[in-house]
Design a protein around this nucleic acid. Structure first.
Lengths: 337, 337
DNA sequence: GTGAAAGCGCTAACAA
DNA sequence: TTGTTAGCGCTTTCAC
């Protein structure tokens, strides 16, 4: 036989289909005995509810749509956590990824079609250009409020940056370079946290334009390493550390430093943000700021669930904040004399 | 109003629901006029078939399940292509990703639950340990036949490796190091292609144990760079190039070379396999072998579609092969004297 | 060519 | 506490 249905269980137990349905949903109005018996038979037959059937019937099914960019490692990490968290609360997640063959508009329309009652969007910069209103009522992860009509779960860089700057200061660094990203809410927020922390710690710094990928980091740092550049060992105002917008940018910085014949962590310290997989590789062993994706995911599911239960569009917009924290590795070390 | 249904179109046109359904499915038994009229109204109302409804009713819905590891960049690339290809043939794809919170068994059971009529598995090494028989009747991408009961779409490394070795030979390289991966079908196949090509070109080589990630590449190559090592410039039997199992491994090799104070592409040439995103970054600019994921995806969808149409389990197992090809970049250059 | 009706697997309003 | 009935949106007989 193919997969057993409610009907099969009903026949096996002698109860009606609806009773079986209620029993398996742990409805309060079913007697303990029946409930037990039905559960048992269901287990014995290997019953698994067919989501298609219930989706079709349920007015507000517990389905969260996730819009992300699977090409970005951090998004995949968030997704893993989101799925685990959602599953533990009996919520489904359906994922759409923006990519070379999929626009944000297509993705969202697909999600709506699949009856998603709430929408979680990771880092909507990619999607923002599209339709204003496209992401209304969504739960946004990862930025300052870029989407006016959406809830927000954001990382507060303050704590992580404070820890990072304190860490560098305690290692004797007095002058740092900050590699910024392209203009945007996210870049502005991180830069602000950095300058605040540096000012506070009495560290002087220099901000240079960079970007969010490895090439940008390379291009930003390479010129600073040349004769007389602020990162060159012989410079009068020698800067001994580089803090980057994110890990990928920091990887570019490390490559630049290596190419210049210098040693990251010894001649120049480098740090990033995101605590990505490559950061923990021994090849880079990059000091980074962790954004606690597990916690972020949990809060995002909280908000999404609330929206599902309250009928998606109502209620005042919320902003939840998750603290970041430093993960120190060997890419940062004592400042050279 | 919420999304229009067949019923809405039926009422708007005066036809019955069944006629509308048939017309939109371009059934032959509907008159040209009606068909046109119904299509037009449907467009005007912005009708989109609800997949849940049709899924529920259709005995063998055109749904492909995809099992992959979204944490791996190449898998995401394959997935993008698979989705595009499937969509163009009116096939749905539902993705499950093996990850920290999801085992292969769970993933497959989820896919079956969603009525997938065919299963595409990318690089099943991760899933293989599970159940023998779990992946019976699947279409496997990317290895030698690891799964006995499955169709296979594989990359033939021959052409790419031949091109790579010829490329290196023409640059004057006579002795190469090959960094192998952990034992397995995939590693064996690539090594074989390499040795064949090298033997053929009269290139001598040395094989060292490595792995599939950046740390493995670093760990494998670093020791060879020391005083008297085969990659050190002063060695009597100096090896001037490194061919790696994949791009990530090659990145580790490049880091090792940079750390040793040497220049990739000048002092030592490095090449990888996969033509990943990082390979094309200016930071690595890595010569690599492209596996034509678009073409692989197309063939995989071909096989999956055939399985759907023929009732999933019948027919002899097929193996389709896609040629690889060289992408030369600056990580390979003339052999030093 | 078209319509009426049944039913995919499930849930929920209403009865009992 | 349980059963009956209706119906989610769709496809597919079976009639006409």
């Amino acid at each position: 036989m193919s997969r057993p249905t409610l009907k099969d269980i009903a026949e096996a137990t002698g109860y009606s289909v609806s009773t079986v349905s209620r029993a398996l949903a742990d409805s309060a109005q079913i007697s303990e005995r029946t409930r037990h018996r039905i559960h048992e038979v269901s287990r014995r037959l290997g019953y698994q509810a067919d989501p298609i059937g219930s989706l079709l019937r349920t007015p507000r099914p517990r389905v969260i749509g996730l819009l992300c960019v699977l090409g970005q490692e951090l998004h995949v990490v968030y997704r893993d956590h989101l799925l685990a968290e959602a599953e533990s609360r009996n919520l489904r997640v359906v994922t759409e990824s923006i990519g070379p063959f999929r626009t944000a508009v297509d993705a969202v329309s697909n999600l709506r079609q699949l009856r998603c009652q709430a929408l979680v969007v990771i880092d909507p910069a990619t999607a923002a250009g599209a339709d204003p209103g496209l992401l209304d009522g969504a739960v946004v992860i990862g930025q300052e409020r870029g989407i006016p009509g959406a809830d927000l779960v954001t990382s507060d860089n303050t704590r992580g940056m404070d820890q990072l700057v304190a860490h560098l200061a305690s290692l004797g660094h007095r002058r740092l370079v900050y590699v910024d990203s392209v203009p945007g809410a996210s870049a502005a927020a991180r830069l602000r946290s950095f300058t605040r922390a540096a000012d506070h710690a009495g560290i002087s710094y220099r901000v240079v334009a960079g970007g969010a990928d490895i090439d940008a980091g390379l291009a930003a740092v390479a010129p600073l390493l040349g004769e007389g550049g602020p990162l060159s060992p012989g410079a009068a105002d020698r800067h001994t550390g580089v803090v980057c917008y994110n890990d990928q940018c920091a990887q570019g910085a490390i490559i630049a430093i290596l190419r210049a014949g210098l040693r990251p962590g010894t001649d120049i310290s480098v740090a990033g943000v995101d605590n990505s997989r490559l950061a923990s590789s021994s090849a880079f062993d990059l000091t980074s700021i962790d954004r606690c994706p597990g916690q972020v995911a949990r809060l995002a599911v909280d908000l999404a669930e609330a929206r599902i239960e309250s009928g998606t569009s109502s209620g005042p917009l919320q902003t939840l904040t998750v603290d970041t924290s430093l993960v120190a590795r060997s890419s940062t070390g004592p400042a050279p004399q």
